[in-house]
């Protein structure tokens, strides 16, 4: 398949600590196609942000491979690695800490060009930066302002402009709107969607907000304790979830209509997420799962299409249960 721009195979990241290895990401296979958005959801500590850092090269994988347009990043060296890195950029979570407060907006957005001088467009860095500001909906005349002179939503636009400077094909968005007001979230999401259409970008969109992910994603991967437990297109995950964890997550999405409140399928999970330094044997979700059988502790369920799950699901007892159904 030639239109796969990003692919991971058996991606693993273990952090060594005194208590043993923390398995933040433990065997993740993903595929991202051109112009597509892949949503990654899961609760705090499931390895979403580590996955994002691995994808953009901020962390080195302990195992597995990351392929950008077929090239294995781990095999690339020197200038070819730099070129491949340019192709995959990131929008960070917190717009208040991801911009250097001592640099002007022009310097921040122009920094990619300082680091990669061969990427500067012919009409010069200054013009390029102003075009980027215009592209993300900011006033190009504000090039000499400092980040503290902007609001949260505007700062996130600056972060997006920086990510776009090197004309990447892939952008990893690590919780890009979770630090923003709800009203601003919609603006930034719409900006990201517009940019995707205009520039043909592919997104890996990491979030814990399920409704935001539903809005923007073509495909969704649900993560739990460093592994993907369910993977499918938007309809499959939201309307026909088969993994108990996905069902529990979806049942926790707030209902906007107060008259329907409390009448929906509610699944309460007991206990906390187990420590990733010492994950449960077999199925990692079994300690909190109402379907767990003794066999779940011995046989690890693989992420695959099952008898009652038309899309890949990592549960021995995968079965469709529409928790989002309206009564």
């Amino acid at each position: 398949m030639s239109d796969v721009v990003l692919e991971t195979r058996g991606l693993v990241k273990h952090f060594k600590t005194r208590a043993g290895a923390v398995r933040a990401v433990d065997g993740v296979d993903l595929q991202l196609r051109r112009g597509e958005t892949l949503g990654v959801v899961g609760e705090s500590g499931c390895g979403k942000s580590t996955l994002a850092k691995l994808l953009v090269g901020l962390e080195k994988p302990s195992g597995g491979e990351i392929r950008v347009r077929g090239d294995n990043m781990a095999r690339l060296r020197g200038s070819s690695l730099r070129r491949a890195r340019r192709n995959i950029q990131m929008v960070m979570q917190d717009p208040y800490t991801s911009l250097n407060p001592r640099m002007t907006v022009g310097d921040i957005i122009g920094e990619p060009y300082d680091i990669h001088p061969d990427a500067v467009p012919q009409h010069g860095k200054q013009r390029a930066v102003q075009e980027l500001l215009d592209l993300v909906g900011l006033n190009p005349d504000h090039i000499n302002r400092y980040p503290h002179q902007f609001s949260g939503g505007q700062r996130q636009r600056i972060g997006i402009a920086r990510a776009l400077a090197l004309r990447p094909e892939i952008i990893v968005c690590d919780e890009p709107v979770s630090a923003l007001d709800v009203s601003i979230q919609a603006q930034v999401i719409n900006l990201l969607e517009g940019l995707q259409r205009r520039l043909g970008l592919s997104y890996v969109f990491i979030a814990h907000d399920l409704s935001v992910v539903r809005h923007i994603s073509d495909r969704v991967a649900v993560m739990y304790l460093g592994k993907i437990v369910e993977y499918g297109n938007q309809v499959a995950i939201y309307d026909q979830p088969t993994h108990p964890y996905t069902q529990a997550l979806l049942s926790a999405v707030p209902v906007p209509d107060p008259r329907l409140r409390g009448r929906r399928d509610h699944i309460m999970l007991s206990g906390d997420v187990p420590s990733p330094a010492d994950p449960p044997s077999g199925c990692r979700f079994r300690t909190r799962c109402w379907k767990a059988q003794p066999g779940c502790a011995e046989h690890e369920p693989l992420l695959q299409i099952r008898e009652r799950s038309p899309h890949p699901s990592a549960c021995h007892f995968a079965e469709i249960r529409d928790v989002m159904r309206r009564f």
Binding site: L58, R85, D94, T97, S98, N100, D114, G159, R162
Partner: peptide, 16 residues
Amino acid sequence: QDYVAAARMLGAGPGR
């Protein structure tokens, strides 16, 4: 800080 990570991601060297 995140902005240091952002610069590192862009490929900035230790001097920068």
